[in-house]
């Protein structure tokens, strides 16, 4: 760092800018909770708040010639703004800070997003469940998920990656959405190739590589809702094409006119699967729940229910609490 002897001391000469903030001292990392494709989540202690346990997501942001990318700033601004609503089905964002060490060398910034710590995710919750969940529990969790999704959609945020891993379950059994809103930040970054991304909750439009919108989250939620009943994934494909086969075996191969344009795969490359009856796959499930899930797993995104439609479905409205 250059510091001229004639001019007043420059900022660069303030040796350790981080010492001004002591971010590192604010949180004490305890252990790794999980490593996703784009970042690691740590369990940490908030030293400024009586040692409260928090979940800290560490995301590396590549710096550009003009500093922190606009898209990242926009996304953080929006996450901060959403937080103002304190939606019950969205994980609380408590703080955002950056680590800042060795920035000049790496041309990257380590961002810390500090969230409330939630006991477990839906994946482990379902794994640990001793038996089938009660009907009320399933309905309440389904409603929580859809409320969270509808909230994001009403703010024009598409989650893109809803799955049991990203759905957190509080000690009182409430579900909260996590890990959203940083899609563009993630996109600019190198993905860790070793991490396998699950395809089970991906809708056909994403697998086919055509444009997508909020309807992707409704599809993913539909898969999760089915899983609440069976505690097993509904569509467990092992690669893109196999995932599509799984989907078409369930909902039937779409008609030619429904097949999107500009797709390299032709519809005829799939056998003409007839649609199955969801009741055969989800036995003993309430007919209204089946009807809802069926409306969520529709091939054409435009014909799929919206999150708000789902919330107004008789499966919920006929069974209002009290």
């Amino acid at each position: 760092m250059s510091s001229s002897s004639t001019s007043p001391p420059s900022l660069n000469s303030i040796g350790d800018v981080n010492a001004l903030f002591q971010t590192a001292k604010k949180y004490e990392e305890l252990n790794v909770i999980g490593t996703g494709a784009y970042g690691t989540v740590y369990k940490a202690r908030d030293l400024h708040n009586g040692g409260q346990i928090v979940a800290m997501k560490k995301v590396k942001v590549a710096l550009t010639e003009d500093g922190i990318p606009l898209s990242t700033l926009r996304e953080i601004a929006l996450l901060r703004q959403l937080e103002a609503y304190r939606h019950p089905n969205i994980v609380r964002l408590l703080d955002v800070c950056h680590g800042g060490q060795s920035l000049e060398r790496d041309q990257q910034l380590v961002l810390f997003l500090v969230f409330e710590h939630v006991e477990q995710d839906l994946e482990s919750y379902l794994k640990r469940a001793p038996g089938p969940l009660s009907e009320n529990r399933i309905r309440s969790m389904s409603y929580d998920i859809l409320s969270g999704v509808d909230f994001l959609h009403s703010h024009r945020i598409v989650h893109r990656d809803l799955k049991p891993h990203n759905l957190l379950v509080t000690s009182s059994g409430r579900v909260k959405l996590a890990d959203f809103g940083l899609a563009k930040t993630y996109d600019t970054e190198m993905k860790l190739t070793s991490v396998v991304v699950t395809l089970w909750y991906r809708p056909p439009e994403v697998l086919l590589g055509v444009s997508y919108n909020t309807a992707v989250d409704v599809w993913s939620s539909g898969c999760v809702l089915a899983q609440l009943h069976t505690r097993a994934p509904l569509l467990a494909g092992s690669c893109d094409s196999e995932q599509l086969h799984c989907i078409f075996r369930l909902i039937g191969r779409p008609a030619k006119h429904e097949w999107p344009q500009n797709v390299s795969i032709v519809v005829d490359s799939f056998p003409d699967y007839p649609p199955q009856d969801l009741a055969d796959i989800l036995p003993r499930v309430h007919p209204q729940a089946l009807d809802l899930i069926k409306g969520m797993l529709v091939f054409d995104p435009a014909k799929r229910l919206t999150a708000l439609d789902c919330l107004e479905h008789p499966y919920f409205t006929d069974h209002a609490p009290h």
Binding site: S2, S7, A77, C97, H98
Partner: peptide, 28 residues
């Protein structure tokens, strides 16, 4: 303008991170 030193851009860019931390990323 002298206060900006020899490398004004670096001066401002360094401050960006301090500014973000100070306003706690509350950008909107």
């Amino acid at each position: 303008f002298g206060i900006f030193g020899e490398d004004p851009k670096e001066e401002v860019m360094t401050l960006e991170r301090i500014l973000l931390q100070t306003i706690k990323f509350d950008l909107q």
